[in-house]
Nucleic acid binder design. Structure first.
Lengths: 341, 341
DNA sequence: CTGAAAGCGCTAACAG
DNA sequence: CTGTTAGCGCTTTCAG
């Protein structure tokens, strides 16, 4: 089998303690001994067992992460940034892609616990009671990234989704639009569902634009749903002149739908997305979007989590609000006031 | 601190052995004892330490995976499928995103070894000598996914990239195209670089179409490079009538470039991509592409790896070749023979 | 059916 | 500077 520290010790004619010391780069080992031990280690191809170490050191250097859907570039990009930051800090990532399966989430949370991960990041917020209960009595630091569950108990790294949606809508209003349709997300999501919807409504209200229920639809953040909701929107008695979709994927779907109906973006209808994904530069016209600082979000998530893990300060937990930013590209244009009442 | 098996045993008035037995669902425990132990476990919120278990059982249930770039939807999608399959089989994933950093790869390979992962999947093939040497003397099963390093020593799950590229090119030829440009990948990649390039050349040769060096460019699989290589291609003395890009991302970039030059896809230039990513349905016109069975690839990768891990049959290692498939969408059209010599 | 005892591979006092 | 001695938390013979 694999060589163990004992084998190295015997082979080098020293005690396991000494081997352990050179392994961990401690001083107080004579240079010649150190060299000899190192040579034996290389010869044997010895590699210390992280497992045994974890057991005695009570430290695994593991972080567990729960992603809703790796197939989505938004989550994949955060994950990438999270991995980057974690590995730089000497932590390793145990990844679980739940694919909307709550059962799998609970199972993994349990596994994370058994694995003695030192921290957990969660990227979705549809917490059912069972999971909430589990999290409540869990003594491992948990941080939410890009979402914020209703409970105040957890730390979150997010943008101000309400303001971001408000700002996006105001941008459209500033361009002269009044018939502004909204393609929202899942209303069970407080962050990306409810908050963005509320921001949209508030913007209209503040500008004295009546809210037209017919212009409001909800999708699942994916392109296909954007396409289909847009199709419904196009069937409205009076067509909207602008659409705000709360994900770039849905916005892209909506754009395609508009095109397939022989209408033009932005000449006939302006479209604005949300997220600031790579897609914005790939579609034509390029998609204006309310950008989330995705990379930074991943980075801040891990850094805060590690902070939380090491400081042991179970009290003080605060949300971290990152800044959103409107990136104007080519998919929106001032409304042509043709049919002013 | 966290309760341990000893605490449960004491609390329930039994030995740790008994607790261990109910933990592992063994029979030979009286029902009343089993019930009592279970109750104590719940009360204490006891969760067995996977670490300690791994140490004694010599089994970690861990699989390490090395991804070149999670930001790419191709890899993210495979990863998703890999995770799905692994978790169903009771394995957990330790993920490393190397971001083209060979140093990080070696570091992670070492960590995987220390972690005693039971298997490793690698999704890129730029193996430098150091990594190759490391892999050679590693006694953990390794499988490559979507790529195949030059060495015969490793198992790979791939498509036949040569034939796929050949077929894609023949499709264009079948449409009457003769001025077919090629936007390749990294020629250091044997699978997606060299093989696809060779397939392209062979298809032209077999059809007696002279190979025009001016029509051959190489990018890095990303949209931007597709855009830029296309720009060069458009500057050719005689414009190509079709372009074969070896990634959908580059194909999409090329399409945008063509559009930005006020030319039309497919009226002026046909474009075919490679991979079969979600992007193909998102761009307009929808992109015809040589599709890789991405989901299946992830699944087969894990299943074969586990097979390899458990069978311990170090001999028989064979590549698994999955089938590619041309998916025709709207980005190609028969050439208009206007300037026949 | 149940428990005592011996490790899994390593580190951490504590002596020398 | 170096080695001895206990464990880390669990499973697993081997008796009873």
């Amino acid at each position: 089998m694999k060589p163990k520290i004992k084998d190295v010790a015997k082979q080098a004619g020293v005690s396991t303690t000494t081997v352990s010391r050179v392994l961990n780069g401690e001083k107080y080992v004579k240079d010649d001994l150190k060299a000899k031990v190192q040579r034996v280690i290389d010869e044997l191809g010895y590699s210390p067992s992280h497992i045994a170490r974890s057991l005695v050191r009570q430290k695994t250097n593991l972080i567990g992460i729960i992603v809703p859907d790796l197939t989505s570039s938004f989550y994949a990009t955060i994950l990438s940034s999270v991995e980057q930051t974690a590995s730089q800090a000497g932590y390793f990532l145990l990844v679980c892609d739940i694919h909307e399966d709550t059962g799998k989430e609970l199972k993994y949370l349990n596994i994370f616990k058994e694995m003695r991960v030192e921290g957990i990041v969660i990227m979705h917020e549809k917490l059912d009671d069972e999971i909430r209960a589990f999290l409540d009595k869990l003594d491992i630091p948990v941080i939410f990234s890009s979402v914020r569950p209703a409970d105040q108990k957890f730390m979150s790294v997010i943008i101000d989704d309400y303001s971001a949606a408000y700002d996006a809508t105001c941008y459209l209003i500033g361009l002269g639009h009044e018939r502004i349709a909204f393609i929202g997300g899942d209303m069970r999501d407080v962050t990306s569902g409810q908050s963005r919807y509320a921001g949209y409504r508030k913007a209209l209200e503040d500008n004295n634009i009546p809210i037209e229920d017919d212009y409001i639809r909800f999708g699942d953040y994916k392109p296909q749903s954007g396409y289909e909701r847009m199709k419904e929107l196009l069937a409205s008695r009076v067509r909207p002149t602008a659409v705000f979709a709360v994900s770039d994927d849905m916005a892209a779907g909506a754009m395609n739908c508009i095109n397939d109906h022989l209408l033009s973006v932005p000449d006939d209808i302006s479209v604005i997305g949300f997220d600031g994904s790579q897609l914005t530069e790939l579609v034509r016209p390029r998609l204006s979007s309310m950008e989330q600082p995705i990379e930074e979000m991943g980075k801040v998530t891990v850094l805060s989590l590690i902070d939380f893990m090491t400081q042991q300060q179970t009290g003080f937990k605060k949300d971290l609000i990152l800044k959103h930013r409107l990136v104007v590209r080519d998919s929106c244009r001032p409304v042509v006031k043709q049919q002013e009442t």
